[in-house]
């Protein structure tokens, strides 16, 4: 009796790891192109951008919010980085020209993302705009800004040094994987060990009680949205670097994959419950699924249907389990 319960407990606890392993096993039987070193790194590299963004998304969702603007912020940040790198910045009226180093451009791009994220936080906390609406507006605004900045054309030819970020290897591991690993590690520490992390969970768990406990709700939320913006910017830099080009429509629809990763990873959309490592697993599941469907030559239309079904399945299983106890 209790033994079966114990088994059930572990099945539930490691359900996403189990799902991942099952997927890998099935895929390696169905196509011999799946289980190759090259493909593995390929998948990891593709996933890393989603991981970076989804870490920010997880923090936002943990507070009980949502961020639909990650894809657009990714685009504008990447474009700003590329623009600064290539053209510097001109201040027309003042007749000033600023040339940018690689570091300057990276910092500039990240700051733009951080600022837009912070602005999300501002409208949400100060003006009480629901997160869904505030970030929906930002989705459009940042996309529009990207178009304005790029004039609707890609910015290309950004140099080898910059390309290293997205395509280089370090100690036998692709740079984007390093970057996402650092981001994940930092976020795990943040959520598990720090006061800020605890506040994030508390606010999502019960905002009223958190407020009555003297937590500075607005400040915490602003920080969280700013972090989400900064991470979108880092995602933007990776994407831009990998393609050696800032595309005006970069990051289009990324918010969906990101939310999917968070949800599959077991984070509750109502806030207060979930983990960073869950999200990483979620991102892996989506990434491997994408990869496998491509390798199996499944038509893109069916790919979408299947991805949607997997998201549903993950959440349904989650719900059934939480009902168990």
């Amino acid at each position: 009796m209790t033994e079966t319960k114990q088994i059930k407990y572990y099945l539930i606890k490691f359900q996403s790891v189990i799902a991942l392993m099952l997927m890998c096993i099935v895929l390696s039987f169905m196509t011999d192109r799946f289980l190759t070193g090259e493909n593995a790194w390929n998948v990891m590299r593709q996933i890393s951008v989603n991981v970076v963004i989804s870490v920010g998304m997880t923090l936002v969702i943990l507070t009980g919010g949502i961020d639909l603007s990650v894809g657009s912020i990714l685009a504008i940040s990447g474009a700003v980085t590329a623009g600064m790198l290539k053209f510097g910045a001109e201040m027309p009226g003042l007749n000033i020209f600023l040339g940018f180093t690689l570091v300057g451009a990276l910092v500039g791009g990240t700051l733009v993302g951080t600022f837009l994220g912070w602005f999300n936080g501002l409208t949400i906390t100060k003006f009480k705009v629901p997160p869904f609406v505030a970030t929906l507006a930002m989705l459009t605004i940042a996309r529009g800004l990207t178009m304005l900045w790029t004039g609707g054309f890609p910015i290309t030819g950004l140099g080898d040094n910059f390309a290293f970020i997205g395509t280089g290897w370090f100690l036998g591991i692709p740079m984007p994987v390093w970057i996402s690993a650092v981001v994940v590690l930092a976020a795990v520490v943040l959520t598990k060990k720090t006061v800020l992390g605890r506040y994030i969970y508390a606010i999502g768990g019960n905002e009223k009680a958190a407020e009555l406990s003297g937590l500075k709700i607005k400040k915490v939320k602003m920080i969280v949205y700013a972090i989400a913006g900064a991470l979108s910017a880092i995602g933007g830099i990776i994407v831009t670097s990998r393609l050696d080009s800032a595309q005006p429509n970069a990051g289009f629809g990324f918010e969906l994959d990101s939310i999917a990763a968070v949800v599959i990873g077991g984070t509750s959309l109502s806030g207060g419950k979930g983990t960073i490592m869950g999200t990483v697993q979620g991102a892996l599941i989506i990434g491997i699924l994408n990869n496998g469907l491509v390798l199996l030559n499944v038509s893109p239309f069916w790919q979408q249907v299947i991805k949607g079904l997997v998201i549903l399945l993950a959440v349904v299983i989650e719900k059934l389990n939480s009902k168990e106890e």
Partner: peptide, 9 residues
């Protein structure tokens, strides 16, 4: 429940 506790902590 509403004002005091973070129920899932």
């Amino acid at each position: 429940k509403l004002q005091g506790l973070i129920l899932n902590m």
